[in-house]
């Protein structure tokens, strides 16, 4: 894609937490970039660090130990800003949060304040970043509610979050996230708590908004089907390490990392013969505090090798496709 230009670049990101039980290396060396108007999917299981990665972009983890670079390219030809170098509680990052980069979460109920109406919450968010009068903010809020497909927006403006269903609340969250026309939307498992028919609605909404508003989306999920349906480019994470990154079609058709391969084989597809044994990955995801050294997938990997105890190299298979694995390095 010649016209692609990165809006967000993450280089060698490390996020560590000091816990009573020791240091948790929640994210250990993640590299990716998000292009304008495109959707990056980050996929992985529990403890893989996908949510931590997302939150560290917005510097929402002040107690963590973050290193590396997160370069945000603002509108115009301004110099990129390294978000890691910003004060996590300072004005600079607050100006970017919500305005340039917005985020939606898995459980919309806990992200909305129960004591204010959804209209008030959207207006508050608008007026935090834009200098608008109350009327203008209200008009904008109602038009946002319309845009995210809330029927009868004018009436629902005065509703409290508990009066809405999960799907409607997630739409409100999206409306709040979109009201300042962010250039990047981070969606952290936005449909996991929703029913299948509602999930389909929300994903369709996110996709159409992305296309119409020329917005970049970072979609974080454990569900490969969501990735297949939405993402242009995929990062596969396992226990804080980046296992593989590739354009979506390449990833599904020609996965390189043994973890990606096993994951793709283990899911049920329409053509999986009924009631036959599925491919499965042995063992279970270790506790992040006890992650193995070297390649963290090695104790479950079918292609494990002696050298996997050392940190694996990044092997490139094309301009945008790479896997972090010893398998493709000749001894």
């Amino acid at each position: 894609m010649p016209d692609s230009q990165p809006i967000l670049e993450v280089h060698d990101l490390h996020v560590h937490f000091k816990m009573l039980a020791g240091i948790v290396r929640a994210v250990d060396g993640v590299d990716f970039s998000v292009e304008r108007g495109r959707c990056l999917g980050i996929v992985g299981e529990s403890g893989c660090g996908k949510s931590v990665t997302a939150r560290s972009i917005l510097r929402l983890l002040p107690s963590s130990d973050t290193s590396g670079q997160i370069l945000y390219h603002p509108a115009g030809d301004d110099e990129p800003i390294d978000l890691v170098s910003l004060d996590a509680k300072g004005d600079a990052i607050r100006a970017i949060r919500g305005k340039d980069i917005a985020m939606i979460f898995q459980e919309p109920m806990t992200s909305l304040t129960p004591v204010y109406t959804i209209g008030e919450q959207i207006m508050e968010s608008i007026r935090q970043h834009q200098d608008l009068s109350e009327e203008e903010a209200k008009d904008l809020a109602i038009s946002m509610l319309n845009k995210v497909g809330i029927p009868d927006a004018e009436r629902r403006f005065g509703d409290f979050p508990h009066q809405m269903s999960g799907g409607m609340r997630q739409r409100v969250m999206i409306a709040i996230a979109l009201c300042c026309e962010p250039r990047v939307l981070i969606a952290d498992e936005p449909t996991t708590a929703l029913d299948v028919t509602i999930q389909a609605q929300i994903l369709r909404l996110i996709r159409s908004l992305q296309q119409n508003l020329d917005m970049s989306v970072i979609m974080i999920t454990h569900d490969l089907a969501v990735i297949a349906q939405l993402a242009d480019f995929v990062v596969v994470m396992y226990l804080g390490q980046m296992a593989e990154k590739a354009p979506v079609v390449e990833l599904f058709q020609d996965p390189k990392h043994p973890y990606t391969q096993a994951l793709l084989r283990s899911i049920v597809r329409p053509d999986t013969p009924p009631r036959e044994q599925l491919h499965s990955i042995s063992g279970s995801v270790p506790d992040p505090r006890n992650a193995p050294s070297g390649c963290r997938f090695r104790n479950r990997c079918p292609s494990v090798h002696d050298r996997c105890v050392e940190d694996p190299p990044v092997v490139e298979f094309g301009p945008q496709h790479s896997a972090t694995c010893w398998l493709y390095v000749d001894d």
Binding site: G29, N299, D306, V309, E310, P313
Partner: peptide
């Protein structure tokens, strides 16, 4: 090399089998 620590060619490599770290 994504390695944080430099590779030590002479260092003995433990066999991969005993890395069964369960949760």
């Amino acid at each position: 090399e994504q390695a944080q620590t430099p590779l030590q060619p002479g260092a003995p490599r433990p066999p991969a089998a005993d890395v069964d770290v369960t949760s």
